[in-house]
């Protein structure tokens, strides 16, 4: 029983990290209607930047989080403005998706060129120390990921509900033409949305780097899982992504222990196929009625 509770704790903490990565992905999907295949590579870029900042500047990864959020926001803005937006009027909407696949490949190879295929572990004091609660242990690094996950989702929720820009983003997702008639500059909304999605990944990178070493393909592992989360929660749904992230975190943690560590991804993707078969709109999906 104690083992089980410990595994649940581990799973929920991991879920916090998945939540941060997934909300960015689900925002970009829900609003721009774009599956961003370069999402993991943005995480990878963020993790190398974290390593650089830690090793070269001697800063703690957590101190690097705010500037990383800013840097990734700007990178996201530039990608949407100069790579994806010119393709908006392309005859075939899939061109944008191919562009993100191309961007992903380009970034992986850029990382190989600059850093090689070695693993870069980011040193960080205190992250692997733990808090003891009776018989249970929580790593500081895990707890920070979990708390940040909750804060990010709550902050985004408030932003979407309470601000003019947030409402305009939701309106654009629900009815693009009508949003334009209200005076919303839809291209600008897309730029901001991609920026926010990338900024989330910037935060995730700073949190995950001390726990998981950076490598050119590190993004794939996390973002494939994030895709499962997004589909499970319902594409475009913020709280769906949050609940989905916690569930997948639990599945990851429990199946690694009770089935086999090597097979946890098999379990996650079996779940993915089951969702697609039986509930393709996900737990909180709105169906395809929203344009």
């Amino acid at each position: 029983m104690e083992t089980f509770v410990q595994l649940v704790i581990n799973g929920l903490m991991l879920g916090g990290l998945f939540a941060i990565i997934s909300v960015g992905l689900t925002l970009i999907f829900g609003i721009i209607r774009l599956v961003n295949f370069a999402h993991g590579e943005l995480l990878m870029v963020g993790m190398y930047l974290t390593w650089l900042g830690t090793v070269k500047l001697g800063l703690h990864p957590y101190v690097l989080a705010p500037p990383l959020v800013l840097v990734l926001f700007v990178i996201g803005v530039l990608i949407q403005r100069f790579i994806l937006q010119p393709l908006l009027d392309a005859r075939d909407a899939h061109v944008q998706i191919f562009a993100t696949v191309g961007l992903s490949t380009a970034l992986i190879n850029l990382a190989l060129l600059v850093f090689g295929a070695d693993l870069y572990a980011t040193p960080a004091s205190g992250v692997r120390e733990s808090i003891t609660l009776g018989p249970f242990r929580i790593l500081i690094g895990q707890l920070v990921m979990f708390v940040c996950g909750i804060v990010v989702v709550a902050a985004l929720h408030l932003f979407m509900e309470r601000t003019y820009l947030g409402r305009a983003i939701r309106a654009t997702a629900q009815h693009r033409a009508a949003a334009q008639l209200m005076g919303v500059d839809v291209k600008r909304i897309y730029i901001v949305t991609f920026g926010i999605g990338a900024a989330c990944v910037g935060l995730a990178a700073a949190l995950v780097a001390p726990i998981y070493p950076a490598s050119p393909t590190v993004g794939t592992y996390f973002v494939l899982t994030a895709f499962v989360v997004v589909v499970l929660g319902g594409m475009g749904s913020l709280h769906g992504a949050f609940i989905g992230a916690l569930l997948i975190g639990l599945v990851d943690s429990l199946s690694a222990f009770y089935i086999a560590p090597d097979l946890k991804e098999v379990v996650i993707f079996a779940l993915f196929i089951l969702i697609l078969l039986f509930r393709p709109t996900g737990l909180f999906g709105l169906g395809r009625g929203s344009e």
Binding site: Y164, R167, A168, R170, A171, Q174, H175, A177, A178, A179, L181, M182, G183, V184, L286, G289, S290
Partner: peptide, 26 residues
């Protein structure tokens, strides 16, 4: 210049209040 489009084109998953707020976006 404001167009009230054919077929209403409201934001279905937003409250009526938020729809009206969107109307005053400029």
């Amino acid at each position: 210049i404001t167009l009230i489009p054919e077929g209403r084109q409201l934001f279905p998953f937003m409250t009526v209040r938020d729809n009206l707020r969107m109307g005053a976006y400029t």
